[in-house]
Design a protein around this nucleic acid. Structure first.
Lengths: 218, 218
DNA sequence: TAGATTGTTAATCGATTAACAATC
DNA sequence: TAGATTGTTAATCGATTAACAATC
């Protein structure tokens, strides 16, 4: 019954791929031809064996005593994630968080290109944020189809989130990345991923509390 | 050797606690005295048994045939996370993302209160963002100590991230929540949590790619 | 009492880690 | 060749799920 937010194999590994990619691109830019699992492990602050396991997923074989070919890993990861060519994406809800995402350089360097923004704030409609034009919600359906957008980023207030998502689905969107903590449902064929900022904070404050907030020893 | 980003028990459960809390507060506001694991499971889109396992961590016992006392759960979770009383926090880097976090209502309803912001942009220094004054970096150390800030949120560009973190540690900060994807190290006694936006997107695009981007069947 | 829901104990599943063989 | 690093296979660990007893 319960739709399960997203059921996919090797989730932890996939979540780490963008970090690998970032490191690998840096190395590549510096002209480093090879990289060892030990180096990546150090950068990622995980164990080397876990790196090797993760890289298995890319299908790239390393060379004993030498390491992995940096460029091969870069392209394999990009391919695995479908980030080879940037995916056209739209942003719904161009408030402060939405605008921050539009301007987020890393985001636009990795996998997606935001080609349109939607907001119902009259002051924003028609303006351009980080080079992306803001359209009213009323044009959502038309533009989704014209631009064949498969992935949408949603940053609207909780009370309109479900309605926005419904419109996106109607417009043919296949994947939704949502930053609103409302209870959303989508049809079977649509995938969605909620980004929950609070969960990271929870981990941090739980640790802080465990340690005792005023433990002043080293 | 490797410092391990954060080693803590029941991590997945802790990450879910804020979502529970949100739902429970809503129920509480509506005057619902009891809640069943089945209801929570439905809202969270997970299995009921997992909810019961999660709630074990709070130490609250349910009543067979009736459910859990909503208010008891709310306070137990708040207590567990140390969110009973808001923790004074500062924000370093009041760029677009930083400003968005400052204005993020949920964040300020849950566990933390941002009492100061720091940025080196002269145009921002001395102004107030969402009611929080922006100070220059040069006053970091002084204010951290005066305000006894234990937790800091970092939204600065990668190239200054380590230096900012070092200053925070020097100023007595014990926990750092960082939104920059640079390789950061902190001393043993400081905990930090990196928020990696890209990892959520990776999951989404990996799924989208697996399904085939133009699979137009139902 | 009967029945719904919790709590407990065991089973399963998957991720991480360890040990070591393979290889350039 | 010797040695460093990968790849493989097995062990461990922890999270989720299942089965069912306990209880109001």
């Amino acid at each position: 019954m319960s739709p399960k937010t997203l059921k996919i194999d090797k989730l932890p590994t996939i979540r780490r791929l963008p970090s690998y990619l970032q490191i690998l691109r840096d190395l590549s830019a510096k002209g480093e031809e090879f990289v060892s699992s030990a180096y990546l492990a150090d950068q990622m602050q995980i164990e080397a064996i876990l790196v090797r396991k993760d890289l298995e997923l890319t299908g790239i074989n390393g060379v004993p005593r030498v390491g992995f070919r940096t460029n091969d890993l870069v392209s394999a990861i990009e391919k695995f994630l479908g980030w080879g060519r940037a995916l056209d994406t739209c942003l719904v809800g161009a408030g402060q968080l939405g605008a921050a995402l539009l301007g987020h350089r890393e985001l636009n360097n990795f996998g997606i290109r935001i080609v349109a923004a939607f907001d119902n704030n009259p002051a924003k409609i028609g303006t351009s944020l980080h080079g992306v034009t803001v359209f009213p919600f009323s044009r959502l359906n038309e533009l989704l189809k014209r631009l064949t957008i498969l992935l949408a980023i949603v940053c609207v207030p909780p009370d309109v989130a479900q309605s926005v998502v419904d419109q996106l689905v109607q417009g043919g969107v296949r994947a939704i990345w949502i930053f609103t903590s409302a209870n959303i449902t989508v049809p079977e064929h649509v995938i969605f991923q909620r980004e929950d900022l609070l969960s990271g904070l929870a981990v941090l404050s739980a640790c802080l509390t465990r340690k005792g907030p005023v433990d002043t020893s080293a």
